[in-house]
């Protein structure tokens, strides 16, 4: 049991190394950690470095984010009525948190239905103006799945405990989860909000066999970018001057002529009025 969990965490850690960290990562010495409970029907206690950190943590609960100094933490998850961390149901596992990283540790079932834990690194790189990010994580006791939006697969063949990340225009996506290669939903359809500058992380968790598959949502905001500019004119009617041509010189000359004519006309009118 232990060795299998550790192996799973190692795979996760290898996947993390290649992922992008936020631009300011080097300046920070702390990391952010959230914890998601994705094991059905099992209230737990979460111990970090043997300290009880989450007491009576219920399925579907999301805790955090905690701001922690970068480093390696030992996490053990016990049944909620355990007296201490000596007989964990999951772990203990070592979670290595790099400076500037934003992580979610998920207690969940593996594809075979056994409790395990996976550490995911959340993508907190900036999103383009008008876009949000959708991260889908397979943490359910279920085979490979497709994620369907508007009836067609936007993610194909996602397996436990992996993720896929999409950058999408802000809006609402009606998403459902189906067994890979099929379109008959096992979860959903459910409306998922894609907000500008927000990484919306959707977890499929639970067990297909037990019929308790569900979706959990975590959001990480503050990733927005400003638009590239505000192009608010197109003709030049309000311009101080033109560049790129000498048209304005001609216009100015014309305006001078009109003005001169106006002065002449008004002078004549005044003279005419005075003569009356």
């Amino acid at each position: 049991m232990h060795s299998r969990i550790l192996a799973g965490v190692t795979v996760g850690a290898i996947a993390l190394v290649g992922a992008a960290l936020p631009a300011n990562a080097a300046e920070e010495s702390s990391a952010k950690l959230s914890v998601l409970h994705g094991v059905p029907d099992l209230p737990v206690d979460v111990y970090v470095n043997n300290e009880l950190t989450l007491d009576n943590f219920a399925p579907s609960d999301l805790a955090g984010p905690l701001e922690l100094p970068a480093g390696t933490y030992s996490v053990a998850i016990t049944a909620a009525d355990a007296a201490d961390a000596s007989a964990p149901a999951i772990g203990p596992v070592d979670l290595t948190l790099a400076a500037g990283g934003n992580y979610t540790a998920v207690a969940h079932l593996n594809a075979a239905g056994e409790p395990t834990a996976t550490l995911f690194l959340n993508d907190t790189t900036a999103t383009a103006a008008g876009e949000g990010r959708l991260t889908v994580r397979h943490t359910a006791a279920a085979p490979a799945v497709d994620v369907l939006a508007g009836g067609s697969a936007v993610i194909s063949g996602l397996t436990n405990p992996n993720e896929q990340v999409l950058n999408l225009p802000a809006g609402t996506v009606s998403a459902s989860v189906a067994a890979a290669g099929t379109t008959d939903p096992v979860i959903g359809p459910a409306d998922v909000t894609i907000a500008d500058g927000v990484n919306t992380i959707v977890y499929a968790w639970g067990s297909l066999e037990a019929g308790n598959l569900a979706l959990a949502v975590q959001t990480i905001d503050g990733l927005s970018s400003a638009p590239h500019g505000i192009p608010a004119g197109s003709v030049g009617l309000a311009a101080d001057s033109d560049t790129g041509s000498l048209v304005w010189l001609g216009s100015a000359a014309l305006l001078m002529l009109i003005a001169a004519a106006g002065v002449t006309v008004s002078t004549r009118r005044r003279e005419a009025a005075q003569s009356k």
Partner: peptide, 16 residues
């Protein structure tokens, strides 16, 4: 940025 890890022995969640 490069992944840098600064071990923080004893820096448990309960203390931070």
């Amino acid at each position: 940025a490069p992944l840098t890890t600064t071990p923080a022995p004893g820096a448990g969640l309960g203390e931070q």
